[in-house]
Computed example of a mutant assay.
Amino acid sequence: MSVAIALDGPAGAGKSSIAKRAAKALDFIYVDTGALYRTIGLAATRKGVEPKPSDEVEKLLNEITVDLTFNDKGEQIVLLDGEDVSGLIRTPEASMMASKISAVPSVRAYLLDLQRNMAKSHNVIMDGRDIGTVVLPDANVKIFLTASPEARAQRRYKELCEKGMDVKYEDILNDVITRDYNDTHRQTAPLKPAEGCVMVDTTELDFEQSVEKIISVIKEHCRL
């Protein structure tokens, strides 16, 4: 029987990088659900579709295909109509579009089965905004990973600077605060800790310490 770990938390909490490392250490599959919403956001941007409930969004969802696959290193690859868009969806603009498009009920419904099927067939660590509350409410372990807005913005700023991108810390912080508000106040599946989840605050932890903490929580609750 497969083991499912639900990892939720706000933007910039390090869910993706921490979950990816923890999954590798535990020999689990890592599923980045945020990448799925970013991909639909990219499709909407390309076609000039506004990220709000509309017939245009419904039409878009009927026209595109979004798939997850993995390379020989176990790294997740996101495909939009067969195109690898894994790199194209990692920008601040894509992040904000993902926040808006993820509030559309039909988009969430479109991706729900894809996410649940992954958990049925693999041992997974799945991260996102509503994994423990909506997608995998019966997950073996539900974790809510967070950190202060300032800490999350600083980490994101450093990451983008290392990629050679010309960004300002103040802009990143404002994006984080705006994203937090949007994610926690939307009508459909708002960001909130799942019932019975383990709260993990990484404000004072570095990356390696955060990974170790998540692995220890999983091992303790799953008896791995």
Rank of each mutant, 00 (worst) to 15 (best):
P149Q: 01
D67L: 10
I29D: 03
L205C: 12
G82F: 07
R21Y: 02
D67W: 07
D27G: 11
I101H: 08
N117M: 07
M97F: 02
R179D: 02
R38S: 08
L224R: 09
G48M: 04
P193K: 03
T45Y: 11
E212F: 03
D130Y: 09
L160D: 00
I40P: 03
T39M: 07
L205K: 13
T178D: 13
E162T: 03
S95E: 13
L68F: 05
V167T: 13
R129G: 05
F28E: 00
E56D: 13
E162D: 08
K192D: 11
L42K: 05
S95V: 11
G128A: 13
S99D: 03
L61C: 06
T178S: 12
F144A: 00
E212L: 04
S86H: 05
E63G: 13
A11S: 15
N71W: 07
L114Q: 00
Q154R: 14
E204I: 02
I64P: 08
G34E: 03
V3R: 09
L79G: 05
D32Q: 01
N71F: 04
P105A: 09
I40F: 02
P190V: 06
G48I: 02
A109T: 13
I29H: 02
I5D: 06
V85E: 01
E83R: 09
V198E: 05
A153T: 06
S95W: 10
C161I: 12
T133A: 10
R108P: 08
A6T: 08
V66W: 03
E162C: 00
Y169W: 12
K219V: 14
I172M: 15
G196L: 14
T69F: 09
D127P: 00
S102H: 03
V107W: 13
V176K: 09
V134K: 15
S99F: 01
A94L: 09
D130K: 14
R186N: 11
K168W: 05
A119H: 06
E220H: 08
P10K: 12
E212G: 06
